[in-house]
Design a protein around this nucleic acid. Structure first.
Lengths: 356, 356
DNA sequence: TTGCTTTACGAAACCGCTTTCGGTTAGCGT
DNA sequence: ACGCTAACCGAAAGCGGTTTCGTAAAGCAA
């Protein structure tokens, strides 16, 4: 276990060969005799030789590294996705022993600058970004830079780049249909700011599902709030204060749904019987909420690996538009969805409030 | 927005200067006239020049990169820490515009190999590892490799390296004392496998606190289980099946505590009144558990930044043993701790079970 | 033996940048 | 006018690899 890393030069000297020969021997060139190749390899791992990656990558002109731009945190309940996504990415990359660089941008400007620096400085051969905005400048930038990239999520016009997403539109159709089948005709939607494409997709799903069921969309039942549990709570309070409150709520995320549950409980109502709530994400923690949260679950573990594989393929020259993968979320029933009960409870509440 | 990155050479040609001169102009050497320096800088960002980092780092002999070894996942409730830690690390590193490399090892052997490769190949100038085992081979390896590193957590003999940890021993003393002050004399401990040093620390705190309060440690009240919510549930069921079950439980993590709550509720008991539960971590979603989880909270956001700063200082030559930071956890009371109630409820239950 | 491939390695250019070292030019004093 | 110092820039040697090209030795045929 020496401290100083040993270079190709001193390895070559040790073997009484030239660096070029040693390099070719290690890299499996055909013009090296089997005996010297063996000799070189043996010496190499006896001395613990590891090629300097900066030198190697400079030479071969390939950073063999991809970058991951962390979503800018909303500081709220920490993103449980990130760890899983990184794990999946890591797995995909490790098959070729590429490296994974993560970047935590502070502002949007900062993020653009980061991207531009990383690709121009040759630090990464590709990037994965997540949670695109409706009209995401990062995508434009990356296309201009001709830098391979994949996006976790997608925008409205997503034909010409690679993405992995779960169908939020479809998911909310499923959720609303489920609630309708339980008898609910007044289902509210709690969403996140619509500059995020996913927020728009899920709202679209909600709208079309309501209409497909022969109901009319009541704009009062659509609440956009901060993308956090607190946001969910605020939005739910707005809904419950309505003259005619909803009997069910679909939320754009599990985190917001947790806030909804809190608001409902704080009024003495019971989620799942007095008001149904369906979240989105399928976070495992939902098992432990009060009551356990019904949610549209997505195949989390998959995303990272798929994104990694896609990115590598594109870097290899694949057409990005060939790599677009849309997963479906499935309904994971726990305890916050239920049939339209005797609606007396919350109706009484709202009526009582109106009288006061 | 050109696609091909422009090199120092073509920038120099563009300016009718040599590469050396341009390089020095950009890097603030004194032997460059102010006018040419301006000229160079202007041309540089007009053309969008970014120094190739592989080349630069090879030349200066510094990878300007640190690695983060992700804790090997127990697949359970995804690690909420990771994202926060990465964010903090990123912030610390970005002050010098260093890069952050994350590695996801599969096995312990894999992990050792990763470390060895990363440092020997000059990919990283330092590493941060987390959740050390009692006798962690990674620490030995890194010391042998003379690679700067910091550890998130610490081992029993932690005098000669840098670490950031929160005092688990102290935290469990606080937790047990709190429960004793509420009248509990039979407090159980749910822990994780003791090869993890943190598990041992917290158990030590539990033991000494029990004794300091003039009570005797009942080994039956110490349950070691899988480090997950399921583990917590299993352990709690063991405890509740005891002839004389505990009236309070301290858990080595919030995740395990959630499992404990589930087990308690499933027996028709109410956490916080029939049995008190205190978790550890202070995860924000504890607010939404049933009931909201009382926990020993730690200053999460801080860890990443501190670890990053420490690592940079050590790379700069600081003595690692000068960088050891022990934070204290504080009691965050929510709803799962309460006074020793009429203990009849759970006693009746256990008695009932014995009779059957 | 000569001549011609193979085989197996050495030599050297190159990747893009940093940094030391020299040397030319300008500016100053005398 | 001369010499001397400073200011500025060019030249070149690395950093540690990869890869092309050339060539000596070895093999084979005639």
């Amino acid at each position: 276990m020496s401290a100083k890393p040993i270079s190709l030069k001193i390895l070559a000297a040790h073997l009484d060969l030239t660096v070029g020969t040693v390099s070719r021997a290690l890299n499996g060139y055909a013009d090296i005799s089997p005996v010297t190749r063996k000799r070189v390899k043996r010496a190499a791992d006896e001395l613990g030789y590891r090629a300097n990656q900066n030198a190697r990558r400079l030479s071969i002109g390939n950073p063999e590294t991809v970058g991951y731009l962390m979503p800018r945190v909303s500081s709220s309940i920490a993103q449980p996705f990130v760890a899983q996504l990184l794990q999946g990415l890591g797995e995909a990359l490790s098959k070729r022993s590429w490296d994974l660089l993560v970047v935590q941008p502070n502002s949007s400007k900062d993020e653009m600058a980061h991207i531009e620096r990383m690709v121009r400085s040759g630090r990464v051969g590709g990037l994965v970004i997540s949670r695109p905005l409706k009209n995401d400048p990062r995508i434009r930038l990356l296309q201009d830079l001709k830098c391979p990239f994949v996006v976790h999520g997608r925008t409205a016009s997503c034909a010409d780049y690679a993405w992995y997403d779960v169908d939020g539109d479809d998911a909310f159709v499923t959720a609303v249909n489920h609630l309708v089948s339980l008898g609910h005709s007044r289902t509210a939607f709690i969403g996140a700011p619509l500059q995020h494409q996913f927020a728009q997709d899920r709202l679209n799903g909600y709208r079309s599902a309501v209409q497909e069921n022969g109901l009319v969309v009541d704009e009062d039942l659509i609440q956009i709030a901060d993308f956090s549990d607190d946001g969910g709570e605020v939005a739910t309070n707005m809904l419950l204060d309505l003259p005619v409150p909803p009997t069910a709520i679909v939320c754009v995320s599990d985190t917001m749904a947790l806030g909804a549950l809190a608001a409902i409980r704080s009024r003495g109502l019971l989620p799942g019987v007095d008001i149904s709530v369906i979240g989105y994400d399928g976070l495992k923690f939902g098992i432990h909420s009060n009551p356990p949260l019904t949610t549209m679950a997505q195949p989390q573990a998959h995303a990272g690996r798929r994104l990694g594989d896609m990115l590598l393929a594109i870097i290899d020259g694949d057409d990005p538009s060939k790599h677009q993968e849309l997963q479906r979320a499935h309904l994971l029933r726990r305890k916050t969805d239920g049939p339209l009960h005797n609606a007396t409870v919350q109706t009484n509440v709202s009526i009582r409030e109106e009288i006061l």
